Simulated assay, not measured.
Amino acid sequence: MFNLFSAAETKAIIVDKLVNQYDKIIKDQNKLEEVRASHQPLSDLEDNKKRMVTRVARENTDFAFGIERVLEQNDLVDISSLVKIVQISKSVCRVLINSKSIGTGFLINQNILVTNNHVIPDIDTCSNTKAEFFYETDEEGRILNPIQFKLEPETFFFTSNMKKIDDDEFSGLDFTMVAVEQTNLKGLNIQDIPSLDLDGNIGKIIKGESCIIIQHPNGLPKKTTLNNNSFFSENKDQIIYETDTLPGSSGALVIGLGTCEPIALHQTGIPKMDEKGNPLTKFGTVATSITPDEDVEWVGNAGIRISRILEMLKKKTFSDDVQNAKKNEILSRTNKSKKEFKKSSRKPTRNCHY
Rank of each mutant, 00 (worst) to 15 (best):
V35E: 01
P292E: 13
P271V: 10
I240L: 06
Q110N: 14
R350V: 14
I13E: 01
I290W: 09
A131K: 01
G248Q: 09
M52L: 15
F133N: 00
T104N: 03
P41H: 10
F2W: 08
L76I: 14
I304W: 00
K222A: 01
Q323D: 06
Q29N: 15
L265M: 05
K24W: 01
N74K: 08
G219F: 06
I85T: 08
D62H: 09
R51K: 10
N128K: 15
R69S: 09
D244M: 10
K204P: 00
V15G: 02
D174V: 01
F2A: 14
M177I: 10
K276C: 12
P271H: 10
I143D: 06
A252K: 03
E275I: 15
D122M: 03
I165T: 07
A57N: 13
D122E: 09
T334E: 02
D75R: 10
F5R: 11
N189G: 07
V70P: 03
E242V: 11
F5A: 08
Q182D: 15
E169Q: 13
F170Y: 15
D44T: 15
W298N: 02
Q21D: 05
G187M: 07
R350H: 15
H39E: 14
K11I: 12
Q29I: 12
N227C: 08
K11W: 02
K49Q: 14
E181M: 06
I193L: 06
P121D: 13
H118W: 05
T61P: 00
K326P: 07
D16P: 05
Q182V: 13
I143C: 04
K204E: 05
P146D: 05
Q267E: 14
S6T: 15
L107N: 04
N228L: 09
Q267F: 02
P217G: 02
R94Q: 13
R333C: 12
E152Y: 10
I14N: 02
R36H: 09
I26M: 13
S160T: 04
N98M: 12
Q215H: 07
K17Q: 13
D192S: 13
L246I: 04
K339G: 03
S91Y: 05
F156V: 10
N328E: 15
C260G: 11
E242R: 10
T245R: 01
E68H: 13
L331A: 09
F149V: 08
L96T: 01
T291C: 06
I205D: 03
Q238I: 07
D320N: 15
L313H: 10
T259E: 08
K327M: 11
G203Y: 03
V86F: 08
K207D: 05
V95M: 02
P217V: 02
